[in-house]
Design a protein around this nucleic acid. Structure first.
Lengths: 147, 147
DNA sequence: AGTGTTACTATCAAACTGATACTAACAATA
DNA sequence: TATTGTTAGTATCAGTTTGATAGTAACACT
């Protein structure tokens, strides 16, 4: 898709997609949030070819969403941990999941519950300023001027 | 990626990705939310090859996020409009954008402002039940049992 | 008749994906 | 000591997808 030029694309959505705009990357981040850290855990969970997994983990590491940490010297072994940027991807995952639950929710689904209250987490996006749900108020897009 | 089997994947995130898990689809939805409806508008905005655009628009239409409407009989011409499912994808777009603004926000960026208050929209994901921001409280993942 | 517009389709090389087999560096067991 | 197992990959390569370019269909306009 030619992601190189997206680093100076003025759209923040396009910039994010340049970093994690493919399904495997998003599923890896999902699994990382679920607690997986190791190559083989991801491979088995995702049923992904090892070549693909290597490439995606390397890309996410390079982009700063994961970091590689050696957890054993003998034999040398690495694991992948979420960075702050990776952890802050969680709201994206939740909104993607909320859409899927609403529009592709037939049959059995994984649920996410609040550990304390035990209630299902119902993720909604709101504007922190007005408090209104995203999409319920008219908005305007402001494009930065050239140069 | 073998999306066929994702329709019965119990993870709502995986199900969404089966529908719109690639960068082009997400950018098309972004542009549709910005008001674009026609083939050539998308093509010019995205700088996408017409073959790709045809395929993506057909897929999004088939999945029910866009609908094709004839806007001229002579000559026969179609446009693509967001459905309710497509409109409800907006929170996903905003959270993706919020991440990009936070972690890839150098230089000039497009801004989204509330049309009435004129303030920048700052999208955050919260749990509608507890009101807490997603990621600030411990959660538990509940996998449905087999069979 | 010639030019322009819109929404595509046809073709095909290049890039990417993914299945499979294999390797490195050990630990554990027989 | 030899064999088997574990973890984290790499090597290879066929098959699929992508994307650049050119062309088409159905008109309107001049």
């Amino acid at each position: 898709m030619d992601y190189e030029n997206n680093c100076d694309n003025p759209c923040p959505i396009a910039r994010s997609l340049a970093v994690a705009g493919d399904a495997w990357s998003i599923l890896i981040l999902r699994d990382a949030h679920a607690g997986l850290t190791r190559f083989d855990q991801f491979r088995k969970s995702l049923n992904i070819a090892p070549t693909m997994l290597t490439r995606r983990l390397a890309a996410l590491t390079e982009e700063g969403l994961l970091e590689k940490r050696r957890y054993s010297e003998h034999p040398p072994r690495e694991e992948y941990l979420l960075t702050a940027a990776g952890r802050d991807f969680l709201p994206v995952l939740f909104m993607i999941g909320a859409w899927g639950r609403q529009y592709r929710g037939e049959g059995k689904l994984v649920r996410f519950v609040d550990a304390e209250t035990g209630t299902d987490i119902k993720a909604v996006a709101v504007d922190e300023v007005t408090g209104a749900k995203i999409g319920t108020r008219p908005m305007r897009i402001i494009t930065p001027d050239e140069s």
